[in-house]
C-alpha cells in the first residue's frame, strides 16, 4: 500500500510539471516543414493533444509541520498448524528432500533443501519438526518401511550437523503407504521418494 501512495505522489509531481507548460501553448505550434527530396508535400504532423485536466492543484504539505511515525505494516501469520505448514511449503521455509531409487544418501539438491530448512528452523526455535520418510512403490512394503526410517533419520542427522537441535526433530517412516503421486511413472516415483518435512507446532 505504500506503493500506491508513492505512485500517486509521482503522478502529482508530474502533473504539476506539465500543467504550467500546457497553459503556455494553448495554440498548436506551426507545422514544421520537413525538407524532402520528394515532390509530394510532406504530411502535416498534428501535434499531440495536450490534456487539460481540471484536477485539483496539488497541495504542498507543510514541511516539518508534523513528522509522521515510520510506517509499520502488520501481517497475520499462520497460527493453525495446517496453515503454517502450507505457508512453509509454498514459501520454502521448509523444503522436502528427494532421494534416488533404493538410496538413503542425500543428494546435493537434498542438502540444499535441508540447508534452507535449517536456516528457518534455527530462527524459529519454538517450532518442532516431523520428518516423514517415504518410498516409491517399486519395492516391497516391509523393506521400504525400514528404508523410509533410514531416509528420515539421515535428514535429521544432517539438520543436526547444521545446528538444529535434534531434540526438536521426530521421524516416522511411511514406506509406500502414502504416495504423493499415485501414478506408476518414473515422474511419480521420483516425487514419492522423499523426506516430507512437517512442522509439528510448538514444543517437543
Amino acid at each position: 500500500m505504500s506503493n500506491v501512495k508513492f505512485g500517486s505522489l509521482i503522478a502529482t509531481i508530474a502533473l504539476a510539471a506539465i500543467l504550467p507548460a500546457a497553459c503556455k501553448h494553448k495554440t498548436p505550434p506551426p507545422p514544421k516543414v520537413i525538407p524532402s527530396t520528394l515532390e509530394t508535400p510532406a504530411p502535416v504532423v498534428a501535434p499531440p493533444p495536450v490534456e487539460t485536466t481540471t484536477s485539483p492543484t496539488a497541495v504542498q504539505a507543510p514541511v516539518d509541520f508534523v513528522r509522521e511515525e515510520p510506517k509499520v505494516t502488520a501481517e497475520v501469520l499462520p497460527n493453525d498448524i495446517e496453515d503454517l505448514n502450507r505457508a512453509a511449503q509454498t514459501r520454502g521455509w521448509v523444503q522436502d528432500a528427494f532421494f534416488s531409487y533404493d538410496e538413503s544418501t542425500l543428494t546435493s539438491e537434498a542438502q540444499a533443501a535441508l540447508g534452507a530448512t535449517a536456516t528457518w528452523l534455527k530462527s524459529h526455535p519454538d517450532i518442532s519438526l516431523l520428518i516423514e520418510g517415504h518410498c516409491d512403490e517399486r519395492g516391497t512394503e516391509q523393506y521400504n518401511l525400514a528404508l523410509g526410517d533410514r531416509r528420515a533419520n539421515i535428514a535429521k542427522e544432517y539438520l543436526a550437523t547444521l545446528g538444529v537441535d535434534a531434540g526438536r526433530i521426530k521421524t516416522v517412516s511411511y514406506g509406500v503407504e502414502r504416495p504423493f503421486d499415485p501414478g506408476h511413472t518414473e515422474q511419480a516415483w521420483a516425487k514419492n521418494r522423499r523426506d516430507h518435512l512437517v512442522l509439528a507446532g510448538a514444543g517437543r
Partner: peptide
C-alpha cells in the same frame, strides 16, 4: 520385529 535406533533398522 524390526526396531530402529538412529536410522539403523
Amino acid at each position: 520385529f524390526v526396531g530402529s535406533v538412529a536410522g539403523n533398522p
